[in-house]
Amino acid sequence: MQPLPKATPPTQVFHVQGLSKTYRSNSIEVLALREVDFSAAAGEFVVILGPSGSGKSTFLNIIGGLDSATSGDAWFLDHQITKLSETGLTQYRREHVGFIFQFYNLVPSLTALENVQLVTDIARSPMKAAEALELVGLAERMDHFPAELSGGEQQRVAIARAIAKRPEVLLCDEPTGALDSKTGVQVLEALLKVNAEIGATTLVITHNAAIQDIADRVVHFGNGRIVREQRNAKRKPVTSISW
């Protein structure tokens, strides 16, 4: 595997080849990921669909630097993620990756603004925390604690926290999974907005097929493999979807 050329547009942000992951417990082997090949271009908005246990989260965790692969290679720009040490992975997450989770994972003892500051405190050239919150439409609520915010608002704080470092990639695992349709749409709007404004390659895992229409590309996982890919010729506006 050679380093990817950096200047040829569109730059490949992720390049994954033959990625496999086997979990072992008490001599039982579970193949979570079987030789996955994948790549994503800069600024691309990719939706990953698939049933539970299809390997999509494992895939996201490995390319996000949270888990290690059993075999295969994954590259982020010219960094080979699959060869990074524990410290290297921490550094990678710290500088390049924004995460958004189903259950927001906000720090309950910090206000919205402070939750974002957690990241801006340690990032290399972050935007202002308030600016990030403005971007997700929460300028008015930034002094509230998580317990004082609705689910949708909490998820938007999580998005602000993820984008404040100006990450190259945004990895979202079921970002609307805990939300109703209306709030979910608001959150997706926020995601699309930041994807457009900071140009971060965005990967969204979801069960929710309704979301696929807003993506540039849709990747279907099944049984640890990518079973199908489709490119949307025309992306639907997020306001037109519901579930």
Binding site: G64, L66, T87, T90, Q91, Y92, R93, R94, E95, V97, F99, F101, N105, L106, V107, P108, L118, V119, I122, R161
Partner: peptide, 16 residues
């Protein structure tokens, strides 16, 4: 513990 694990995900080091 949950917050701490989340911070690790966000790129905080073990020491931090």
């Amino acid at each position: 513990g949950r917050e701490m694990a989340s911070l690790r995900v966000l790129g905080f080091t073990r020491a931090e």
